[in-house]
Write a protein that binds this DNA or RNA. Structure first.
Lengths: 147, 147
DNA sequence: TCTTATTTGCAAGTCACTTGCATTTGTGTT
DNA sequence: AACACAAATGCAAGTGACTTGCAAATAAGA
């Protein structure tokens, strides 16, 4: 799954490149992800869409369908932050999260080369797997503000 | 959260030690986790309970309540394997999983010392967190059998 | 055995997410 | 510019894992 450079592309060109039809819903949703550099839930997307004056109402079902379609197309990545809702973020660079189990604050961190080496060693030792496609790594703690 | 040595303790002693009242449901559910060394869902627990001749019917709600109570008490750990249901396993040793995204096969792997060192370095670099309580690390790929 | 707080069963409820279907809309074609 | 048609959307109903209120049952200390 090739990475997306969201800095250089506008939403419509990216959608076109990925073979999506350009619709107001898709443009607006992708735009929200590009402007907000944090993980977002379907519910948060809906709220942000409601506030937009430039666009009519977009149905909740459409948001869910768009998110899952973007995920399948490699534009978004679904992440599990141990909350009751799924979070999505742009899949344009590989990083992980530290989540405050008290207030929900999320901080990103980059994966190091050492980490990749360790992961490959784990797979080398595995009897049932010879390679892995992806992995999730999330840290949980209490942030300084809550402490 | 102190680790549990399930090898040395029988279910009732462990429950008592943790301050739980001993009930048939709790004994049976904990027993299932001790005998099955794999992550299990609430649904799988229900099925296994149904098969037991030694015990009457145990309600689904009781299973959910017991699982979440055991989780809160540190006996079980909830893990996210990117499926539609929550998995639980005994929290008696720290390990992670490689999951086949095709057939669902799960393999455990131990965390290395290098990994712990890397994680502590990540936290050292963090501006918002000064320590973490736990972390999740799951690898996803296609197992040899499916390949 | 008694007492009381806890646990359980049952049924109804919740909530994120999905889906069937009729209508609308992008987009390539004429 | 209009057409045709597959794809996208809105709406409402459905799904499924999980939760909860409440009355009845029960574990465990007195």
């Amino acid at each position: 799954m090739e990475d997306i450079n969201t800095e250089e592309l506008n939403t419509d060109i990216l959608l076109k490149k990925k073979g999506y039809k350009i619709t107001p819903a898709r443009t607006a949703i992708l735009d929200i992800f590009i402007k907000n550099k944090i993980p977002l839930t379907a519910y948060e997307i809906c709220k942000k869409l409601d506030k937009l004056k430039t666009i009519g109402d977009i149905n909740e079902a459409t948001v869910y369908r768009t998110l899952s379609s973007f995920e399948k197309g490699g534009i978004l990545k679904k992440i599990d932050l141990r909350k009751d809702r799924a979070y999505f973020e742009l899949s344009n660079d590989h990083h992980h999260h530290i989540v405050c189990t008290n207030c929900g604050e999320i901080e990103d961190f980059k994966e190091s080369n050492e980490m990749e080496i360790i992961l490959s060693q784990i797979v080398k030792k595995s009897s049932k797997f010879k390679n892995i496609k992806e992995h999730s790594l999330e840290l949980f703690g209490i942030c300084r503000a809550c402490n």
